[in-house]
Design a protein around this nucleic acid. Structure first.
Lengths: 304, 304
DNA sequence: GTCAATTACGTTCTCCGTAAGGATG
DNA sequence: CATCCTTACGGAGAACGTAATTGAC
């Protein structure tokens, strides 16, 4: 059925000749010798089974059938040219769109400067950022609404492809006048006897932290709160101390509190990019992911 | 700039693979060996500068860029396929349209059976017939409204391309009981002394006939009328005789009158098809013109 | 006679198929 | 190890350029 092979070269030759009514000139414009051009037209006519031009040595005019074909050829060439150009622009990262999801804590501190740099490098690529809770990031990835999500490592099924971006740890947060405030690092045992402010909100990382924390004989501060900003306020007011994930630290350092790395083995976790299994990222998204992976969170660790 | 060459083969390979997610199967559907197919995809990707498929040995999936390109490729292939099919249908005379202009006398007697036969042979081709006076046929051709016109030969400038269809002559028209009615042919001199009914309407042919007719000593019938049907009535009523073009004879034979060929040399004229100079006819129109040229007016001459 | 398109022909390069190689589950 | 895609390579055919031919005014 469709054994016929039409190439853009042939169509272009046709359109060119239809416009300039001269084999000589048209051949020149197509960067072909005149005989080669002549053959091209001949081949096209043979392929289509229709004479497209009526030509003597003096005039080259479209046949009625040629005029029938011209707009189609024109449109096809335009379509292809536009599509190819668009594709090239995507490949060159001149246009595009990338959508990502991230936990609010990641979206608050680590991501912004990277996204800004990305936008500066590729101004033609639009960036969409969903700052939502963990479950929502997974849903957004699953449904293909975002290209990938940036999360703290959690027990993900094999539903997703995972790429580690950087390693984070937990931090003791206390007032600057606290006895541990000047330490370069602590172990959880060092917190024995401290009044601890519990969080109920950081569910995913809480699950990792809690098994270790429960082995430490803490004093009860009497507080269990939902928001990290609340914890920050309580700590600043002398209600006690707490241990939080590195990615949330901005809530506390901004409040003038001190953060001390927790050095226990096993209390580390990966910040990861997750995407749909087997699917590859668009060029724009892949570029962003690469940039994320290449950007260690110097800002976080530099403070300590 | 557009040195890129995309062929329908490549696009088709792309679309096929996008649908069946298997090189093996897609190659088969494209009637290619698998390696050849693989190369085709590779060439296309190279041409576009973008990876279109992500492929392991287990899965073949479009990249986001591939999905961007798919609808375009699809549409381009459809466009071309439709256009080619349409062109082939035109070439095979399965579809089309032809418009012609003809003098009313030609449109009344000679053309109808030919047009009917044409329509029977090519039911998909629509026929439009303008039965108008000479000047109008020329205008219709000039403006490209009709493909060609069928006229009696007249001094046409080189504005048109002319093709003779058949030769016609003049006829004496008289009552069956007229003394010349049974002759197989006459010369104009034979009309000496006859009462002649003049026509003012057949301008173009009148110009050819008159120089000969004026040399014959006719009796004046006292009538000069515009319509051939009027002349027929007058002749039938015994008012006289007249000489008319063969293509108009139906006006008289239908009225029961006799027609006798005028055998003078020089009193012949061509029925011609005229078309715009240098332009070629559509396949449908060309086919009709050929059919016209191949159909001698046997009906006319057979009567005598 | 001149200008323009076509045909002739040798070369180059594309594109295909067979066969061997590599990756993945 | 079985499956499927890729690489390697040799041959057939396409497509180009140079040169000679035909055709129209």
């Amino acid at each position: 059925m469709n054994q016929h092979n039409l190439s853009t070269h042939l169509l272009n030759a046709f359109v060119t000749l239809a416009h300039c009514h001269q084999f000589n000139l048209a051949a020149q414009r197509c960067h072909l010798s005149q005989p080669a051009f002549s053959q091209a037209i001949r081949r096209l006519e043979q392929e289509l089974g229709v004479r497209l031009f009526d030509r003597n040595t003096r005039s080259v005019l479209l046949t009625p059938e040629g005029e029938l074909f011209l707009p189609v050829a024109q449109q096809v060439l335009d379509s292809l040219k536009g599509a190819v150009e668009n594709l090239r622009n995507h490949a060159e990262r001149r246009v595009g769109k990338v959508a990502i999801a991230a936990l609010p804590s990641i979206a608050a501190e680590w991501l912004p400067p990277i996204l800004v740099e990305y936008r500066e490098r590729y101004p033609g690529i639009a960036v969409q950022l969903f700052d939502v809770i963990l479950q929502s990031t997974l849903a957004l990835v699953r449904e293909g609404i975002v290209d990938f999500a940036v999360n703290a490592d959690t027990n993900l099924k094999d539903e997703f492809d995972v790429r580690p971006l950087f390693e984070d740890r937990f931090y003791l947060v206390c007032r600057p006048d606290h006895s541990l405030a000047e330490r370069r690092g602590i172990l959880l045992q060092d917190l024995a006897g401290q009044r601890y402010i519990h969080s109920i909100k950081t569910a995913s990382l809480w699950r990792q932290l809690y098994p270790y924390l429960r082995q430490v004989p803490l004093r009860d501060s009497g507080f269990e709160v939902g928001y990290l900003s609340t914890i920050a306020g309580l700590i600043a007011s002398g209600a006690g101390i707490s241990v939080v994930a590195g990615i949330s630290l901005f809530n506390f350092t901004r409040a003038g509190l001190k953060a001390v790395p927790v050095r226990d083995d096993g209390l580390r976790y990966q910040i990861i990019a997750i995407k749909r299994r087997g699917r590859t990222l668009s060029i724009a998204a892949q570029t962003l992911e690469d940039l994320l992976a290449a950007t260690q969170p110097e800002a976080l660790s530099a403070q300590f």
